[in-house]
Amino acid sequence: MSDPAVDPEEVRHVADLARVDLADDEIERFTEQFVDILDAFEALDDVPETEREADLSNVMRPDETRESLSQEEALQNASDTEEGQFKGPKVS
């Protein structure tokens, strides 16, 4: 917590994990923004603890089938499809 330093390397790594391609100048900009954002979150350290909501537990549903979406409905937001499947770029 006390070490909010974010370096460009870390930004690059996080971007890789999220499969986001960043240009060098973006890396620089995001590094600064990361630091700002983490600083902003530090404000939360000063928020007093309050009563928590009553604990929920064992929220379950019976093992009973419900109707699924149709194939058309399932695919309606997809930018590209083929033979009833979502189509995307190749992966590595």
Binding site: A74, E83, Q85, F86, K87, G88, K90, V91
Partner: peptide, 12 residues
Amino acid sequence: SIERADYTLIDY
């Protein structure tokens, strides 16, 4: 195989 692929199809 994954190496020879041009694209990906997904069934959920």
